[in-house]
Amino acid sequence: MSTEQPPVQVVVSLDTVVKEYGATTALAGVSLEIAAGESVAVMGPSGCGKSTLLNMIAGLDRPTSGSVIVQGEDLGHLNETGLCLFRRRRVGMIFQFFNLLDDLPALDNAAIAAQLTGVSATQARRRALELFDELGIADRRDTYPALLSGGERQRVAVARALMNRPSLMLADEPTGALDSHSAEQVMDLLIDLNQIGQTLVVVTHDEHLATRCASRVVRLSDGKMVGEQSVEQLL
């Protein structure tokens, strides 16, 4: 009796992606595939192109050449509005400096992501509150970002990223601006998410984060992929 492996569903596929900013080459022909449910950490020294790579996958920036296909969607073929709609429905993103909207209280910062897809404000807030409960920040729902701690802000950002149940979660140095306790909490969150099947790409300097959250580590240097290891190999 033969045991047939189910076909691996590729969520992200980068093919010789180059990104240049004037005379500076941020990415120099990176090719990478990420499967559904996988958790990948992108590591490397400062300026090696980690965040640029993440921005390409999120559709926040466009490659100079090469292709970026996410969930079958070639991002190079999407206009600015198309990229926004793509991010809205398919991607949840967490930044190092949170990037919350200062004018909205915490709950609305999360709810706005659902409202953008056409969900009513009441439903969006209900969903956001569920996430706030799970993330332990329900009591901070009416607080503006400026008055939240770093850990609280990042949890609001995580809630916002999860609002539309994205198939792909991207995190750019998610613990970079946090104290160790808050960083641990965020790491736990990411692990939990991955364990329930969430595809995860984390850009980080932090080996500890990478080994805890990722099943595979991709290393970049000077815009090129210089190595790829499973966490087991890393350990």
């Binding site: 509005t81 991010r87 809205r88 919350l100």
Partner: peptide
């Protein structure tokens, strides 16, 4: 910067 965050969240250029 505010505009950048809005776009990252999913606001279209028109929005």
């Amino acid at each position: 910067r505010h505009i950048g965050i809005m776009k990252a969240v999913g606001y279209t250029p028109g929005q």
